[in-house]
Each structure stands twice: as structure tokens, then as C-alpha cells.
Amino acid sequence: MKTEQEIKEVLRQWVLTKSKKVTDSELKFDTHLLETRILSSLHVMELILEVEKMKGTRFNLKNIKPGVFNSIDTIYSSFFGSPA
């Protein structure tokens, strides 16, 4: 089982490889990803696959609200934070 920090770091690295709009030193766990266009909505589909893979389960996309992808912190708390 990965710790919170480890999961967030995996997500952070994923964002860094996908987006050329942010540097390693700029990207924090609470950096806003959508407002700053670091991630486009089109990246999100790939991110969903990444999260599904990490969790090993599928989730219901109907329950996903835009706020979920605001930052690495919100992604973590939405998908990994509380027991499902």
C-alpha cells in the first residue's frame, strides 16, 4: 500500500510528463491544474485511466464533479482519501 505522499508524488510526476506548461519546481500538490490550464479537459481522460490503474478499480464517472481535478490534493482526496 502506498502512502498519501507517495500517491501524490506519482500523480505529480504524471502531470509533469503530460503537461509542458509547468516545471518540476512550480508544481505543488495544491497548484490549480485546470484554471492555469496545466491540464486541459482532454488530459483528464488519460488521468482517469491512470487513477483507475493505480486503484485497480473502476469508478463511476457520473459522480465526478469538475472540482475533483482542481489539484493533486483534490484528486487524492476524491479517489484515494476516504475508504470507498
Binding site: 485546470l34 479537459s41 483528464v44 481522460m45 482517469i48 485511466l49 473502476r58 463511476n60 464517472l61 465526478i64 469538475p66 481535478f69
Partner: peptide
Amino acid sequence: YPDRKLIFP
């Protein structure tokens, strides 16, 4: 199969 595409305003 469900959709994974989300478009934000």
C-alpha cells in the same frame, strides 16, 4: 461501455 471524456467549461 461508459465514457471517460469530461469537458469543463
